[in-house]
Amino acid sequence: MAVPGVYMNKIIVAVLTVIIAVVLASVLYVGYYSREIHVRVATTTSLYATGLLDYLAEAFEEKRSGVVFDFIPVGSGEALRRAANGDACMVFVHAPSLEKKYIEQGVLDEGHIFAYNYFVIVGPSSDPANVSRASSVIDAFKRIYRVGEEGKALFISRGDNSGTHVRELSIWARAGLNPRGRSWYLETGSGMGETLLVANEKKAYTLSDIGTYLKYKKDGRIPYLTILYTNDSELINIYSVYIVKSCSGSERKMAEEFMKFVIGEVGQKLISEYKVKEYGVRLFNPVNGRLELLRSLWVKLSEG
C-alpha cells in the first residue's frame, strides 16, 4: 500500500503549488491594476455597443493619464438602479422618465444632455398598417393597433425596461391604447439587435434606435425591414450624463472632468463626427446650441 501513499503526497504538493501560484498571480494582478483611479460608469448597452464611450474615454485619457473608466454596459433601468445602490459614479442613459424618478429620489446630482438622435418605427416594406402615411407617431401606433387587431400585423416590443421600451410604452399610453396581452403584441425581453432580428423574421413592426437599425441594415441582417416613420420632436432620443450623489473623492473629481469633456467643445465635435464616414449619416447629434429646445423636450418626455 506504499504506492498510493507516495502518489497522494505528490498530488498534495501539486495542489498546494497550484494554489500558491494562483494567489501570487492574484496579488500581482490587483497590485498592477489598482495603481490608477477607476471611475465606475454605468451605461446603456446601446450607447456602449456603438463604441462611442470607449472612443470618448480614449480621447480623454490621452490628455489625462492615470485614470481608467470602467464601463458597465446594462440597460437604462439597471444602470440607474445600480447608481441608486451606490455601485456607479457616473451614468449615461436615455430614459427621461426614469431619470426624473431617480433625480427626485436624490440619487443623481447634476446632469447634462450631451447628445441626441431619433427613434424610428421600422416594419416590412409592404406596410400593411400604412404607417408611412401616419400624421404623427400616435397616429402611427393607432394604425398598427387597428391592423394588429384585424390579425394583419405584428408588433415586437423590447419588454425590458430599456430606454427604448420605456419610450414605446409612453407612446401607447398617449395614444390611449394598451397592447399588452394582445395576440399580435410580442415582448422579446432582449436587446435591440435581437428584437430587430425577430421583427425581420416575423415581418413585424417595432420601435428602434437609429444606430442599431443602421448597423444591422448595413450588415444585411434585416433585409425585410425599412424605416417607415420618424420625426424630430416626438421620436427624439435624448442621451444624458449624470454624476451619482453617493460618489466622492478622486473618482468623483475624474468623473466631473470627463463629464465636462463630453459636453465641452472637443467632446461634442468627436460625437458629431463619430462613424459618419462609415454610415454616411450621423449616429449621434451634438447639442450645439439647441440645449433649450432639447431641455423642453426632455421635460415633456420625463412626464411620460
Partner: peptide, 16 residues
Amino acid sequence: YTRVMTTAIALEVSRG
C-alpha cells in the same frame, strides 16, 4: 478587468 469569454460573446452579439 472583468471581461471574460462569455460576457465578451454577449457584448459582441449586442453589437451585432
